[in-house]
């Protein structure tokens, strides 16, 4: 009986070694360990043994059974592992094939840039305000120190809707409105749409966008203006950007300056982008004219302030090197898709 058991063991282990699929393995398990299996048969045949031999043999058979069961489990794991390896090998894909396309949505490039500006100024404590696009002559001109029949009105061609009603030519129109609504200290920007009767071409659009900035407090100086604009320019054009003032004229500021930034392409050495100048004109600014403060109900003997006006469209076209401003308003999807990065 002992020999029989040993022979069965060798036979079973040898057979198990050669198995390589789960079905054969199950078959093997039934044949040896099932109700009618060979190992079970051995147990059943123990009735013929003596009372002394029976527990000894019983233990041996149970040992064999346990050994075989462990071997089957190990084999099953091995087969599973083998099968998984094979399946994974078969499932190999060409990873260089393109991904499944899912289109993105996105903001219009003007608003991509505007959002950046809003972030910059908001972080400097500027409130973001809004104003009407259809303005009165008063807010667009008179309150800005441009009386009727003043030559400064020639600086911009205005669209009129009715007597004294016009499409605002500048977001500066928000200045007096802001001063009427708020008390100093005032720190706002007013982004928005403005209109001038310019014929449409690659660099002109009758509809464009500005961001007006206005700061009013006690003791505000030209140096503060330069500080804010330098901060803004460095955020937009890079940390090394320098800001330069050139004296100029706007009716609503005094002193007035044109503001240049060092060309970010060449770092100020002069290149095609800055037309060799090393500087690019980006905006107009100045100290709020005392007459404008007065129009807004603020005493110029007590308060001073500065204002600046940024052209969003130009900022956008220069940032992305867009050659023609008309592209911004044509809205070809292939154009719009380029500014999500």
């Amino acid at each position: 009986m002992k020999e029989q058991l040993e022979a069965l063991r060798s036979e079973a282990l040898a057979e198990l070694q050669g198995l390589n699929d789960p079905k054969q393995l199950e078959d093997f398990r039934v044949r040896y360990m099932g109700k009618k299996g060979s190992v079970t048969a051995l147990l059943r045949g123990m009735g013929a043994l003596s009372a002394e031999e029976r527990p000894v043999m019983g233990q041996l058979v149970n040992q064999l059974r346990q050994e075989l069961e462990e071997a089957v489990t190990a084999k099953a794991d091995a087969i599973q592992a083998q099968l998984q390896t094979a399946r994974l090998a078969a499932e190999r894909v060409d990873v260089t094939m393109p991904g499944k396309k899912e289109k993105n949505g996105g903001l219009h490039p003007l608003n991509v840039v505007l959002d950046d500006l809003i972030d910059i100024f908001q972080s400097m404590g500027f409130d973001i305000v809004d104003g009407p696009e259809v303005e009165t002559d008063y807010y667009n001109f008179q309150a800005l120190n441009v009386p009727e029949d003043h030559p400064a009105r020639d600086m911009q061609d205005t669209f009129y809707l009715a007597d004294k009603l016009l499409l605002r030519t500048q977001t500066s129109a928000a200045q007096a409105r802001t001063m009427e609504e708020r008390k100093p200290p005032i720190r706002i920007i007013c982004p928005g749409r403005v209109y001038r009767a310019d014929e449409v071409d690659a660099t002109h659009s009758p509809v464009f966008h500005q961001i007006e900035g206005l700061v009013i407090d006690k003791g505000v100086t030209m140096c503060d203006l330069k500080g804010v604009l330098q901060q803004f320019a460095q955020e937009i054009y890079g940390e090394d950007t320098q800001v330069r003032f050139r004296p100029s004229f706007f009716p609503f500021t005094e002193p007035s300056v044109e503001v240049d930034v060092s060309c970010s392409e060449c770092g100020g050495k002069g290149c095609r982008v800055c037309k060799g100048a090393g500087w690019i004109e980006i905006l107009g600014a100045g100290m709020v004219h005392p007459n404008v403060l007065r129009a807004g109900g603020i005493d110029p003997e007590v308060y001073t302030g500065f204002a600046f006006g940024i052209g969003l469209d130009r900022l956008t076209t220069t940032r992305y090197k867009i050659s023609d401003i008309r592209l911004l308003f044509e809205n070809d999807v292939r154009f719009l898709e380029q500014f999500d990065k």
């Binding site: 404590g125 973001i128 809004d130 503060d224 500080g227 003032f245």
Partner: peptide
């Protein structure tokens, strides 16, 4: 103008706010 130096914005520290509509 080159004598005008850039000074950081001064005054009480305030938070810039957006209008609810925005």
């Amino acid at each position: 103008c080159e004598h005008i130096v850039a000074t950081p914005i001064r005054g009480d520290i305030v938070r810039g706010r957006k209008l609810p509509e925005r």
